[in-house]
Simulated scan of single mutants.
Amino acid sequence: MDIVSRTSLIIYLKHMKHERQIRKFGHIVSTNKQQRYVIMYINEEEADSIVDKLMKLKYVKNIVGSPYKYLKKEYPKEQHEFT
């Protein structure tokens, strides 16, 4: 079984009623109705083509990629931890 690398997108919508149409592009993890965005996981290999398709839709305002892969994940030991 191969592990497929995935990335998350934050998709801002004009209206939350369009959430259903977006489901065909990936796996929706979370939604926020007040701020009108959807967090979705998609395959990393198909990310460019999916983002292009989503940006062409009338009801999509903005798409932001998740900053998780650019965050520092290893931290040096602090001085107070040794004493």
Rank of each mutant, 00 (worst) to 15 (best):
D2S: 08
D2Q: 06
I3Q: 10
V4N: 08
V4W: 03
R6W: 02
R6L: 10
T7R: 10
T7D: 08
I11M: 02
K14D: 15
M16R: 04
H18R: 09
R20N: 14
Q21P: 00
R23I: 05
K24D: 07
F25H: 15
H27S: 00
I28W: 05
I28S: 06
V29E: 15
V29S: 12
V29N: 14
V29P: 00
V29D: 15
S30C: 09
T31K: 11
Q34P: 00
Q34H: 07
Q35E: 11
Y37D: 01
V38C: 02
V38S: 01
I39D: 04
I39L: 14
I39E: 11
I39F: 06
Y41I: 01
E44L: 05
E44D: 09
E46G: 00
E46D: 14
D48W: 01
D48T: 14
V51D: 01
D52T: 15
L54G: 03
K56T: 13
K56N: 15
K58Q: 12
I63K: 03
I63D: 01
V64I: 14
G65S: 13
G65E: 14
P67W: 03
P67R: 13
Y68D: 10
Y70A: 12
K72Y: 07
K72P: 08
K73H: 09
E74Y: 12
Q79H: 03
